[in-house]
């Protein structure tokens, strides 16, 4: 499931990068949380894409995106949080419990 989401994400990114399919660029992406860190520092997705944040850690985390007024609440180990990015721009994502865990989602 996770790998499928990831390949879809790369396909979407390729479309966007080549400028070939702006309309098709809205896909899905997965970012994993391990060892109190996000696996990606920055990702680019198309407008309307849904990003899945998957807690593969042994501790509880949280997804906080101030610009979207988004707060996932507590995210236990194994929990996945889905966020849809409807507007273009740069969005800082943090864990509200461990704020050193941060990354950026760039929506094209």
């Amino acid at each position: 499931m996770k790998t499928l989401e990831r390949s879809l994400f790369f396909a979407g990114w390729l479309f966007a990068a080549t400028g070939a399919g702006l309309a098709l660029a809205s896909t899905a992406a997965t970012v994993t949380q391990v060892d109190k860190a996000f696996t990606e520092k920055e990702i680019s997705v198309g407008q309307g894409a849904t990003v899945h944040f998957v807690n593969n850690d042994s501790v509880k985390h949280n997804i906080l995106i101030k610009k979207l007024d988004f707060n996932s609440g507590l995210q236990g180990p194994g929990d996945s949080v889905a966020v849809t990015f409807d507007k273009p721009g740069k969005f800082k994502v943090r864990c509200g419990i461990h704020p050193k865990m941060k990354m950026k989602v760039v929506v094209n």
Partner: peptide, 29 residues
């Protein structure tokens, strides 16, 4: 510092991080 939030078991009534995030488990953190 890990710049993170923890309840270390002090007696104060202050809700701490709970009030900011609205997550009850973060009371006193």
């Amino acid at each position: 510092t890990d710049d993170s939030f923890h309840d270390i078991g002090l007696a104060s009534e202050d809700p701490g991080r709970e009030e900011v995030l609205g997550i009850a488990e973060l009371r006193h953190a």
